[in-house]
Design a protein around this nucleic acid. Sequence first.
RNA 1: GGCCUCGUAGUACAAUGGAUAGUAUACGAGUUUCCGAAGCUCCAGAUACAGGUUCGAUUCCUGUCGAGGCUACCA
Length: 601
Amino acid sequence: MQSLKCGGMSITSTIQTAVITALEQLYNQSFSAKDFQINQTKPEFEGDYTVVLFTLLKPLRLSPDVLGNALGNHLTQTQPSFFCGFNVIKGFLNLTVADEYWGTLLNNNYQNKGYGRKSNRGKTIVVEYASPNTNKPLHLGHLRNIFLGWSISEILKADGYDVVKACIANDRGIHICKSMVAWQKFGHGATPESTGMKGDHFVGDYYVLFGKAHKEEIQELTAGGMSEEEAEKEAPIMKAAQQMLVDWEAGKPEVIALWKKMNSWVYAGFDVTYKRIGSDFDKMYYESDTYILGKKLVEEGLQKGVFYKKDDNSVWVDLTGDGLDEKIVQRKDGTAVYITQDIGLAVEKYEAYHYNQSIYVVGDEQNYHFKVLQLICQKLGLPSSDGIYHLSYGMVELPSGRMKTREGTVVDADDIMDEMIKVAAQKTEELGKVKDFTANELDKLYNTIGLGALKFFILRVDPKKRMIFNPEESIDFHGFTASFVQFSHARASAILRNEQPNHHWSLQYNEPLLSLEKDLIILLEQYPAIIQQAAAEHNPAVIVNFSYDLAKTFNSFVTEHRVLKAETENKKQVRLRICEMTANVIASGLALAGIEAPERM
RNA sequence: GGCCUCGUAGUACAAUGGAUAGUAUACGAGUUUCCGAAGCUCCAGAUACAGGUUCGAUUCCUGUCGAGGCUACCA
């Protein structure tokens, strides 16, 4: 029976093909997959999958009942071992898929830990994420960025792409000069070592000091009659920062030395945080390198006439023809602006990897920036321009509103991770199920549960959407959470510790699959398509939501049916296979979100 | 002002144009001599408003109201 052997094909496309063939044979008309929908049948109706007939009625000039019955009869008669029953309600043809199909699927895949992963496509995608400024520590917004970037990279790998995880350190610019000036002025030679601080937090404090000093100077100047706007620019400390940027680009040795020293402190701090998150990069870029290529491309663009120079020597691009505005690409003092380096980086990435796609995981407040970037790259005739894809995600807000530095409401990345792990430890101790664990094992488990909860809480939301982070809800371990999914994995593992499936047993189909058994296999069947969907939509939430559905169904299944004391040996073998495959798919799905699945918790 | 995004139960999130709009929390009520109760079962509760397209609209279009972002020689 051919349909039973359709290894790589999802059941919806199998049904789609079967329907197309049937329509061809019955009515001598050709349709494509786009012409009608296959949905999972709603639980209140009998059947597994549903063909929505409405769109076919007009071209075929048939009533829903006539078409539904003709199609249902044809499918069940020509492929009886695949379609074992049908019913037609209104314009819906509900098909029941034979237990033998589900059993075969289960038996073929239950041990396969790589189930759902595609073979290599020979295409490369560069994913840029994290991309922090090196003047302050990482916060909750960065965490959404890093979780997303890392997860989408893993999902794309699972979908058969070669992925390069890239990070650009925004290590130069006026913001960096601000913390440098402040340290010169107020630091008195202090270092992270001398103060016992994590380097990124140490430097971040000077950035804050700059802001305070700047504000005070503005107040003095406005008291003397200057306008607010002018005072911001004329404040001595701001002048000093601007001068430092010019000196930096000129390569003034003492400025460069200070810059290197302070950045190294920040990197040391970031490394600790990345390691804890479990994030990694294949390639680091530094804005301090890429801006030079950017400036070179600005020069070329001037010659090509893509850019033009204003009287004050600043360089611009006119995008009014594309519905946007004019955009500056180089300042009048000759220094690079933010977008300058991005032009350089786009070229550098392309030359290194000849990517098919270059994804930028960057917040949606920069939607305009990336529109401009892509247009500029197009106008410069760069081959890199086509593959540019801005994976734009929404802001993370607190229940009280947007995080604001000056109000001190920014949630620090290190702090929130500490908190999550602490609460995970408390909860685990209360339950007292792992008293025999060693200190190391406990430590690892608390990390797995605490960080898992955080990643799950953030990744469960569609990236495009703004999300509200409620600290109290994030550390809940009930309901739609990582702990729930991890618990299900531990539960399946516990059963499998008692007994493994007998691999020599050949499954019998004389006792029908029970509803929860079949629900689980149906979900497991969907996993490869789920990976594909998550990759195509660049959306880890698809995987996270799926893993929760699977875990939820599994918990009901385990509560409802005995596995080890099943009614018959055959049932036991079916259920053991379901346990093993569910455990594998949960572990695999969570792994794509950067979450570990413990054997015990 | 211009451009873009978003309005779904008290709250937080789902739903390639398809059947009675799912799930979790918080709230009620049950559930452990039985493979893990971080579980399971039951009870309630929502598509901002007004039009339009369609056999069918949370989804697509228009308008109103509301929220956010961008519109920097900041990044």
